[in-house]
Design a protein around this nucleic acid. Structure first.
Lengths: 174, 174
DNA sequence: ACGAGCATGTAACCTGTTACATGATTCA
DNA sequence: TGAATCATGTAACAGGTTACATGCTCGT
């Protein structure tokens, strides 16, 4: 479905999409090369995309079809079929009582640091993208920046939360 | 791995764990009945857990072993092997430029409402758990509440973010 | 005695991952 | 001409889902 969405923005080959997945998309929806090519074949079989050009080296340029656009709109509107939400990091929090308190504190401190590092990484990315693309005019760039903003806020929240839990742990010590 | 963690807190049968997954655990790490039982057999084969009692109806009560505790500590300390982070909702944001602006605004408004609904649900859950369990004394309850707090903050952040994106969309309109 | 709930398991299927495999083109 | 990169594909496996299947036991 991610592939269909990207093809809605502009036509491209499997290889093109792969690059997109490695760059901007990787933070949101990672996909492997293998996965991508079989997905493209499946979408083409279903008539949601079609080959619009064949270049050198057997390069197949795909384009979204009318049926594909309809399917994309349908998917956007209905979050029911989403894969269930599983967070390994939240599971760890649940089980933090099972390891020595010293290690638990260490774990939370690392969470704080990792969130800050992630914020630095995303900020840099935002500055790069935000300046080259004219997010004022381009819808796709506007929403890509909104997604990036989400990531920034998420990590800020996470750092603050881990910090607060640490403080509460200190408060509990006798 | 989630099953191993729960057995570290207290011994129990597959059926017992299933109830835990349906209740408190469901928000963090959903698992199906089928999955759970085969997982338990695999853990037992690997020597990470063992049957410590057999009750009526073939009820097998499992208990974590020393090897299991070691494995759990190892897993807690190393987040490298986590499944990749995939968020269908963030992907939707990325693709929001592909649907009519009216629908995009509608989508964001629904995000705000759903976050608020989720906050209400989690608040209720927190009040129930926070009063019965003495989170002051019990480590497990303390960290379960911390995980719940994470969920609350996440949804608050999400509502605020969606609200702000909406405002920025309005600002862009000519 | 019978229904609700306890308790476990199997089979078919789908998705995603890693590793393997192949060949074409460009450019230095 | 040889290396880098373009470009696609297959096979084996791991993890999760749904649906199917079976039997025991407790309380009324």
């Amino acid at each position: 479905m991610a592939a269909l969405g990207l093809l809605a923005q502009r036509p491209g080959s499997g290889y093109d999409l792969l690059k997109l997945f490695e760059n901007s998309m990787a933070n949101v929806w990672p996909a492997t090369q293998s996965q991508l090519y079989s997905e493209l074949n499946k979408l083409a079989d279903g008539g949601l995309i079609e080959v619009c050009d064949i270049g050198p080296r057997g390069r197949k340029v795909y384009r979204i079809t009318t049926a594909g656009r309809a399917e994309l709109r349908r998917w956007m509107a209905d979050p029911d079929e989403d894969p269930p939400f599983r967070s390994a990091s939240l599971l760890r929090v649940f089980l933090l009582g099972q390891i020595p308190a010293r290690q638990a504190r260490q774990h939370l401190k690392e969470t704080v640091e990792q969130s800050h590092a992630e914020i630095a990484r995303l900020s840099e990315l935002r500055d790069k993208v935000g300046l080259t693309d004219s997010a004022q005019a381009d819808d796709d760039a506007f929403f890509a920046l909104a997604a990036l903003d989400y990531g920034l806020r998420l990590n800020a929240m996470q750092a603050e939360w881990a910090h607060d839990v640490l403080a509460r742990m200190e408060g509990r010590r006798k």
